Simulated assay, not measured.
Amino acid sequence: MKTVTSRIGLVIVLFLTTICYSQETKIDNDDRDQMRFGFKAGVNFSNVYDEEGNNFVADGKTGLAAGVFLSVPFGKVIGFQPELIYSQKGFKATGSVLGFDYDYKRTTTYLDIPLLLQIKPSSNFTLLAGPQFSYLLETKNEFNNTSNTVEEEINGDNYKKNIFGFVVGADVNLDQFVIGGRLGWDISKSDSDGNSDSPRYKNQVIQLTLGYRF
């Protein structure tokens, strides 16, 4: 929990610093009523919550986030921003079985489709919130103990392909460049049932990206 809180604090500091910079440089190109298309890439800081049937506490991991977005204005203040994002999520964990310590890491790769409402109080700053639909592309589990390492790809029936979630965030617009921050979490579970081999959980992600818009 402390790690998640510190990362949220980092996002806030980043946005405040960027806003101050944009004000100092006087970027006054007000294009809030124009349709814009762009691409972006960055990093996910992911973990899980609402763990059930587990004998461990999950820790966060990092992953890739990259994709495209479209900004559709409904005037200067309100707009709509759909996105298509390749997004790596998952978690890490440590535990002990029969006196042997182990490390466990799960990487789940999704195609995320957030459908975001834009609120644009200024040309340099945009608030975003809305639902997100995620389609599971791949699941990888890595299990390490003192003697060996096992890595496997899983595409079993127990893993839900379609996940529903919610996203809130903000963009700082510096002319053509966009610095974005998102906080996302699943509402539906990623597994149909949970047990010690296939834990049931929901994803949560802090996402930071740098984009370019046309």
Rank of each mutant, 00 (worst) to 15 (best):
F15K: 01
S46F: 12
G75T: 08
K61A: 06
M35P: 11
P114N: 02
V97N: 06
K40I: 00
I19A: 08
V57Y: 14
D101C: 05
R32E: 02
N44Q: 09
I113Q: 03
V43N: 03
G95H: 14
V48L: 13
G79W: 08
P131C: 07
G53V: 15
L136V: 12
N47E: 11
E24A: 12
Q23H: 13
S134Y: 03
G38W: 01
A41I: 06
S96K: 12
D33M: 09
D28L: 12
I19F: 11
F133H: 02
P121R: 12
A66K: 03
G99W: 06
I113K: 01
L115M: 10
F15G: 00
D30S: 07
K92P: 11
G67Y: 02
S46R: 08
Y21Q: 00
I85D: 00
S122Y: 02
E24I: 12
T62D: 01
S96V: 12
G63L: 08
Y104G: 04
G60M: 12
P82H: 07
Q81M: 11
Y102E: 06
I85N: 05
D112M: 04
S134H: 02
K40R: 13
T108Y: 14
L16Y: 10
V97Q: 07
S122K: 06
I119W: 06
S22Q: 13
Y49Q: 10
R36A: 15
S22G: 09
S87F: 07
Q132Y: 01
K61W: 07
L137Y: 08
I27A: 14
G38E: 04
